[in-house]
Simulated scan of single mutants.
Amino acid sequence: MVFASRRCNGTNAGLTYLIENNKKIIKMPVYLSEEFLEWECGEFINHRFDFSIGEHKFLVLFSPIDVSDVGYHALRSEEVGFSLPSDSYDVKFDRLENFESDNFYATPKKSDLGGIGGIAYLEELVDALTHIITLHCNTYQAKSYLMLAENMRLKQFYDRVLQRSFDEVLSYVATNLGEEGKGYALRTRYYET
Rank of each mutant, 00 (worst) to 15 (best):
M1P: 09
F3G: 13
A4R: 14
S5N: 13
R6W: 13
R6C: 14
R7N: 11
N9R: 11
T11S: 09
T11Q: 15
N12R: 08
N12T: 10
G14E: 07
Y17N: 12
I19A: 12
E20L: 09
N22D: 13
I25T: 12
P29E: 14
V30K: 00
L32V: 01
S33F: 00
E34V: 07
W39F: 12
N46K: 14
R48V: 07
F49C: 04
F49Y: 11
S52I: 00
I53H: 00
E55S: 04
K57H: 12
K57F: 02
F62E: 00
S63Y: 03
D66P: 00
D66Y: 02
D66Q: 03
V67A: 02
V67D: 02
V70M: 09
L75T: 05
S77N: 06
E79L: 12
L84K: 04
S86Y: 11
D87S: 13
S88M: 03
S88N: 09
Y89C: 04
V91R: 00
V91M: 06
D94L: 09
R95V: 01
R95P: 01
L96A: 07
E100S: 13
N103V: 07
N103S: 09
F104T: 14
A106C: 05
A106Q: 11
K109G: 03
K109N: 12
K109Y: 12
D112V: 10
L113N: 14
I116M: 14
I116K: 06
G117C: 15
I119D: 11
A120T: 12
A120W: 09
E123Y: 09
E124Y: 03
E124V: 08
L125Y: 02
H131C: 06
H131M: 14
H131V: 11
H131S: 13
T134M: 07
C137Y: 03
T139E: 10
S144E: 01
M147C: 08
L148E: 13
E150Y: 05
E150C: 05
L154Q: 05
Y158V: 04
Y158G: 01
R160Y: 15
V161C: 06
L162Y: 07
R164P: 01
F166K: 04
E168N: 10
E168D: 14
V169S: 05
S171T: 11
A174E: 13
A174K: 12
N176R: 15
N176F: 03
G178C: 02
G181F: 00
Y184F: 07
R187P: 01
R187S: 07
